[in-house]
Write a protein that binds this DNA or RNA. Sequence first.
DNA 1: AGGCTGTACTG
DNA 2: CAGTACA
DNA 3: GCCT
Length: 742
Amino acid sequence: MDKNKSRRPKRDAQELCASIPSASPPRRRSRRRDLRDPSATPDRPFQQLGTQATANTLVLGLPASLRAGDLEGGQPVPTQTQTQLPKPSLALPTQLIEQHATSSFADVDVESEGGVKVGGDTYDFEHDEEEVDEALRRNEAAAARALGGEPRNSGGIERGDEGCVLNHESSRSPYRRLAEMVAAASRRDVDGGAASVNPDRDPPAAAASPGDPKRFFSPVVAYFAPEVSKTRRGILGDRITERGGAVARDVNDPRVTHVLTTSTTYRHWNPAARLVSPDWAQACIRAGELRPEDEHPPALTGGVNPPASLSSSPLPPVASPMRLGPPPSSQDASQGHVVVDSGSGADGLVRPWLGKKRGAFACQRPSTAAPVNLNPHITRPLEELAAIYEDVLGGTNAYKARHHKQVAGAVERLDFVVTDVEQLCDPPVTPAFAQKTSTVRDKIRELLATGKLAKLEELKRKPDVEAVLELSGVWGIGTETARKLHREDGVSTVAQLRALAARQPGKLSANQHVGLRFYEEFKERIPRDEVEALAGHVEDAVAAVCPGCSVTVAGSYRRGKTSCGDVDVLLCPSEEFIRGGSQGAPGATVDTVEDILPAVLARLRTRGVVTDDLSTGTVSWMGVARLPDSRERLAPTTTDGAEGDGAVAVVTPKRLHRRMDIKTYTPDEMPFALLYFTGSGYFNRSMRTWADKAKGLSLHDRGFNLVRGNDMTAVRDAKFRDERDVFEYLGLEYVPPEDRSV
DNA sequence: AGGCTGTACTG
DNA sequence: CAGTACA
DNA sequence: GCCT
């Protein structure tokens, strides 16, 4: 069947240009967008905007204070856009912006899963025990009441889909040891190649010439990887800022010079940063001067240090030509305790997830970031109902579900126990609570009065509800298929579905069979270090196929979650590769962007990492992966007699099958791709809504499309080098990944 | 009354 | 095209 | 279900 017929023209245009590098006259892929004019793509009523730039045409430049404010007291880091913006101005009346802030983004706001950061300058993207204790102390009686009948785990601390209180020190993790060994093995594989992966980047240590020895950290902007414990972040961060350095909250902040990580497989997308162990900072502090980074490659504390070449192997996809501004000048940092990232909306910028009302509310209650759900008696039924609306009833009920979840999220974040609906209306928890009528508010009233929801009880009594809920949990089965299976085949449980699938394989699609096979395994969360280990295998394959191609783990991993539902990996070949294929990237076995992914997958399949496919395109893959048996991996048939290591039996505790997505993007698409692939889903929706309403732009994973307005030259001429540029262009205050878990 | 994100694969 | 999925 |  020629299913994608209608979309073909567009894809062809993309693919055509994308595959040009080797075959035809080299052409930058970004031109691709320029090709897409309205006449050429009748199915698309707007024009895709290019990213080539002369940035002076930025219409909606943010107040310079956006960036300048980030580095307090320092000079704004010159960027191609900002330097040419003489006068900050928002194109929209503040009123309009605020309007959207309250409406369009209210949903995002209240659905935060990771704890709201009100102050703006903390590192708390997870809850730790300290905070929990503090909160419990704060409202001990209330907490006791709220948590009374509940097992601690389900009702409180470890609630949520991402888990909260987990150890970050997985230093003894077998996954990690395995990853190291795998890395060592692959180093043998691609020896020589590894070196070329890493362009020489001068260690700042060499260039540093701090005048004041006590401020030797002044050339340094450090970023602490999420796995570094909070305590250590705090202590080292203080020392660094005390000595003139800065600490960034986002690894992709272009000013970051050092990423402090214990992970040997930490991935990011930051051309300027260098990966070092936190031990490096300690060594510098001890020595009273900057020490060579090479002596402290990222490694487990007290563990085996891999060679430096590995530690910095993720190649910055955007090399010097697009490099922006020097890492912060010593002048920037010499002003002292600099924490990159402002966190305040004081300059009139919009934090998308902080609506106006919410902001006011938060100001009144700085402790709103309650780490414990004090109101499970309200949020549980609401969420249960929402799940039924969404997964069972489907259709426009999804919007009902969204609002129920919204309210549940807002209530969950309150730091007091709700006993009366009026408590939710005074400052309204969501805009709806300021309205005259609200069905959700009525439901809460009912819950408080009777302890249950008639609507929920009623739905749960229906026999198909439970069946559809369970069946739609299988990957590839949604509400419609689940309903049909129940209605026509009398299937109510996954077990029954398995029986049916065995009897009549034709009942299910190939993907649904895969989903069914791994039903239990896909429900398991993936610890960060396993994500890293899996990504490490991808990196090995990429290094062999296309040296210089960056590997970035996005998704909830990038948002700093302690466990993830799947593994989201972005590949981005170098500019050189884009231009010259294997000529531009010596050692590459492929020549076009489209060839990378299939080659990488082939390698991963032979290694047993990729076990199944769910959907396969040339630049996008969804499927199943798992850690290979370590012995198989370490005594590969492909290696030259290095079997010695094969004897090392690292038994992986369980090698579950995991959902993995891999996508390939070009360097000019990366800022958009990162934004999209980092999510969260709600965050993306809000940002896209904002782009549309406020700017007349349609935001997607490769760029903007112009929807209305005729100022497209200005937009087209803008240049987007990193995520910050996108935020800036949209008139939004930058939000670091950890704060996007709405 | 109509909108609510935008894209892409599968069958 | 409808259904499902991704963030 | 809420918002415009």
